[in-house]
Design a protein around this nucleic acid. Structure first.
Lengths: 347, 347
DNA sequence: TTTAGCACTCCGGGAGAAGGAGTGCTAAAC
DNA sequence: GTTTAGCACTCCTTCTCCCGGAGTGCTAAA
C-alpha cells in the first residue's frame, strides 16, 4: 500500500525530529512543524495508521512515536534529501586529509580518526586489492658473512627486502644464476604456483643453492600474502559515549569490544559507491541496533578502500552520508596524486 | 611519624578490602578480618588517627574509610606482598604470547590486547631505541624505464627498499659509481651528517646523478627518522567500562579519548624494571584519578619496549604488578629468540 | 588502653503524590 | 467523509518524604 503524501511528510518530520532530539515525537510537535496546516488530532489519526503499518513505534501507550527500522529505511530510500556539503565542511574535510604519509595502516588510522571527528561517530577503514599481486622482479645482494639480501619488487611497484641468514657460503658467481632463475620462473605467478615451481626445480640445482632460493621464494610468498590480507582499523570508538543511546556502560562496552576485537565481521561494501545498513539489517548481533554507512574510495588504480561509520539507528543519515562521501572523494583524490612511488603507478 | 604495627595492619586490610569491593570499609568489617582480636571501637580510634594522618579518607561522616593516594602509596611501598604467579596465570601468559609475527606495531597491538585481557585493564605499549640507527649499506638496482630501486640496510640488519622514480636515464655503468659513493660517504653517520655530506658532494658529480643520489639519501634519512620515532599503541580501552569507577560515561569518555588521542603523554619508564604511579602522582590531568603501572622489556639487544597498564587507583596492585612483570619477561624471552632475521642480530 | 553503649549522621531505597506529555475516542463542525 | 475540539485516561518522570541501616564519634566504665 502506498503512503499518502501527508503520511510521508509526517513520517519525515518524525524521523528528523527524533534524530535531532533523541526523544519520542508527539502529535503536537509534528503539527507545529508541518507546513500544511492540520490539527494535532488529525496527526494522531495518521500516526495510528503509520504505527499499524510498521513505520513507527510507541515506547509505551502515552508516549510519542519513534521511527522503526522500517521507518528509517523508508526515510533513507524515499524521504531523505541528500545534503550538499557546506563550504565549511568541505574545508574541514580537505584540511583533515593533509595526512602525513608513511605506512599504509598508519594513514588509515589517521584518516579514520579524522572522519570520526567530522561525523562524531566511530569509523572503520579497510582496504581490498583489485587484482592479485605478483612478483615482478627479484634481486639478491651478497653481504659479508655469507648472508644475503633479498629484494622483491611486486606488481604494484612496491619494493620490499629482507636479510636472509644463511649458514653456508654462496659465492659471488652463483648469485646471478639464482637471480636469473628467480626472474625466469618465479615472476608473475601466484603463490601456489610458486610453491609448485619450487618443488620442480628442487632437483635441478645444488642443495645449498636451493636453500637460498627457497628462502627467497618463501619471503616473496609471505609478502604477497601479507599484502593481500584485508586490513581493518577502527577509530574514534570513544565518540560512542557521547551518544545518549550508549550512555549505558554495558551497551557501550559491547559495541566497543566488538569494534576492537571483531573488526573482521564489520560489514563491507561489495559494489556501488555507498551502502546504508539500518539496525536489524546488520547480520551481526552486536550491530542489531546500530546503523552503518559505508563508502568506498580508490587507492590508486590498484586498490580499493572502504570507509564506514557506525552509529545509533537514530543517526543523521543525510548529513553523515554527505560528509562520508565527501571524505571518500577526498581520499580518492589524495591517493590519486600523493603516493606516486608507492601504489598508484601500475601501468 | 612511624605507623604502629597495628595501624599498618589496619591500613592493609582497608586497602585490600576496598580493592576487592570498591566500597568504603567500616570498622566492624575490619575487626572481623583482623587476626589480632580487637574490638571495632578500637579500630575506630585507629581509623580516626589514620584519617588525620592522611592515609585514609571518608566519603562522608557516616561512611567507612577508603584509602587516599597517600594510603595506596604506603601500601604499595610497604605493605603489599608481592605475589607469585600461579601456574594457571603463567600458562595463560605464555599462551597469549604465541603472537604471529609480522610488522612490529601489529605485534605490539596484539601483545597489548593479550595483556589487557590478562589484567582486565587498558594497556599501552611503546618502544624506544637504545642506540641511534645508521645505514650500514646501500644498493641501487636499475629497472627498465629509467627507474631504480634503492636498497638500504640499517645497522639493526633491517633492510628496506623503495622504487625511485627518475625522469632521466642513468646508464648501467653509472650505478656502481653511485653505490660506491654512497657506501663510502653515507654509511654509519647520522641523519644530519648525511645532509651535510650531501651538500658537499653536490658539485663533484653531474647533476642528474646527484638527483638520484639525493633521492637515495633522502629515502635513507626518512627511514632512520621513521625508525627512531617512538611508537605507541593502546589496547583494551573498552575494559574501562566494566570498572565501577568508570561506569559514568563522561569519566570513561575523557580517559578513553585521552588513551586514543594523547598516547604520547602517557607516562614512560626511564630506568628500573617497573614503576607504579598512583592517582595524582601522574602529571597529566586526565590521569589524576587513575593509576599506571609500567614495566619494560627487551626487544633483542637493540631496542627496549615499555608496557603499561592504566586502571583506577583502586587497582589490585599486587596482582597486576605480578602479571605485568611476568608478561614483560615473557616478551623479552620471545623477542630474544623469535625474531632472528629482524632485530636481535646486532653484533 | 581497650571496650561497651549510645546518640547522631548520612546515604540509599521505596512509596506516594504531583505534574506533564501524549494518546485514543467521541461527537460535532466543515 | 474528513477534520477538529474536547476530554478522560495512561504512563512516565520527578520530587519529596520517610525509614532503615551502616557507620561514626564520644563518653564512661572495665
Amino acid at each position: 500500500m502506498e503512503l499518502t503524501q501527508r503520511k510521508r511528510q509526517i513520517l519525515k518530520v518524525v524521523v528528523e525530529d527524533h534524530i535531532r532530539t533523541a526523544e519520542p515525537v508527539g502529535s503536537k510537535t509534528i503539527a507545529a512543524e508541518m507546513t500544511g496546516k492540520v490539527s494535532s488530532a488529525t496527526i494522531r489519526n495518521e500516526l495510528a495508521d503509520l504505527t499499524e503499518m510498521g513505520y513507527l513505534e510507541q515506547p509505551h501507550t502515552s508516549a510519542g512515536r519513534i521511527p522503526s527500522p522500517k521507518g528509517y529505511r523508508f526515510y533513507v530510500n524515499e524521504l531523505m534529501e541528500s545534503q550538499a556539503l557546506s563550504e565549511d565542511e568541505r574545508v574541514r574535510i580537505d584540511e583533515s586529509l593533509q595526512l602525513r604519509g608513511g605506512e599504509m595502516d598508519r594513514m588509515m588510522t589517521q584518516a579514520g580518526k579524522a572522519l570520526s571527528s567530522i561525523v562524531n561517530y566511530p569509523t572503520y577503514m579497510a582496504t581490498t586489492r583489485k587484482r592479485r599481486l605478483t612478483v615482478r622482479r627479484f634481486d639478491l645482494l651478497g653481504v659479508d658473512g655469507g648472508n644475503c639480501i633479498a629484494v622483491v619488487m611486486m606488481s604494484n611497484d612496491r619494493v620490499k627486502s629482507q636479510l636472509l641468514q644463511l649458514q653456508l657460503d654462496v659465492t659471488a658467481e652463483q648469485l646471478p644464476i639464482l637471480v636469473n632463475l628467480l626472474n625466469t620462473h618465479f615472476v608473475n605467478i601466484s603463490v601456489s604456483e610458486m610453491s609448485q615451481k619450487l618443488m620442480s626445480v628442487a632437483e635441478q640445482i645444488p642443495p645449498q643453492l636451493f636453500l637460498l632460493l627457497s628462502q627467497a621464494v618463501n619471503y616473496a610468498a609471505e609478502l604477497l600474502e601479507e599484502a593481500d590480507k584485508r586490513e581493518i582499523v577502527t577509530a574514534g570508538a570513544s565518540q560512542l559515549l557521547k551518544i545518549p543511546e550508549f550512555r549505558d556502560a554495558d551497551k557501550a562496552h559491547d559495541l566497543m569490544s566488538f569494534l576492537a576485537d571483531s573488526k573482521e565481521s564489520l560489514p563491507v561494501l561489495d559494489d556501488g559507491p555507498m551502502k546504508i545498513l539500518i539496525g536489524p539489517e546488520n547480520v551481526d548481533e552486536a550491530l542489531k541496533d546500530t546503523s552503518v554507512i559505508i563508502a568506498s574510495y580508490d587507492i590508486g588504480d590498484d586498490m580499493r578502500g572502504l570507509i564506514g561509520v557506525v552509529g545509533p539507528t537514530r543517526m543523521d543519515y543525510a548529513t553523515v552520508a554527505a560528509r562520508l562521501s565527501g571524505f571518500a572523494e577526498g581520499l580518492t583524490r589524495m591517493f590519486g596524486k600523493n603516493l606516486p612511488p608507492k601504489e598508484d603507478t601500475e601501468q
